[in-house]
Amino acid sequence: MNAATIRFDGATVRYSGANRNAVENVSYDVRGGELLVLLGPSGCGKSTLLRTVNRLVPLASGRVEIDGSDVNGLDAVALRREIGYVIQAVGLFANMTVAQNVGVVPSLLGWKRDEIAARVDELLHLVGLDPATYRARKPSALSGGEAQRIGVARAIAGRPRALLMDEPFGAVDVVVRTALQRELVRIVSELHTTTLFVTHDVEEAFRLADRIVVMRDGRIEQSGEPFELFDNPATPYVRQLVHAGDDVYRRYFARGRELLRSS
């Protein structure tokens, strides 16, 4: 149940007042349990496409399906409770403790108090934070890396069918980012949760992705496994983006993938 398939079918988004579509006729099948990276420059529509899945952004035309059901036919609030959501700015609720933040979706789902407490401790362990130390802290007392660990824990607390991550590690330093990437790869492979991960960072895409979708001007430029793109770039844009043909980069990207997956 936590490895939903997601299907984009001619998905098109137009923001009011804009003179072109933010997302233009995107069709793509996301496999259950895969970590799919949406890669592209800012303004390419990758975040907008991500936000159509949990209906934070409405479609102008086309459809998005999760496990075969059109998301527009589902109750938006109920749908969002079944889909984890992590953003770059984290957005931990400043008026709540760490435990209340992590427990927010279980509490919305009506879990019992002791179930929530147990789940919070389990998740703090999962993201590498000691529950006794962090449970009662306020978000203002966390470092950027700690805050985003909590952000990830909060997103998966309700055992979501899918996880949406919008440049989640963009605001933390390189060392912390690598640690967070390692944990994400471990968590996704452990939980087998279908994950859509938005980034503009090619290196990050190569490190994390099962498959990459390169976007540009609202359209899919090319998609495939990381080294498929590297070895067979379909357009000059992709060739340049991934540094295709440069063997130093190939080894560098490969090393990055190993780095996250070695114990």
Partner: peptide, 27 residues
């Protein structure tokens, strides 16, 4: 109130009334 918190609240499945009562109004 920090817009990121409101975005997160909506994205995690709070209804508009819950966003107001649990996140916006307390702050």
């Amino acid at each position: 109130v920090d817009p990121a918190q409101v975005d997160a609240a909506r994205g995690l499945g709070m209804s508009p009334a819950q966003v107001l009562a649990r996140v916006e109004f307390p702050q």
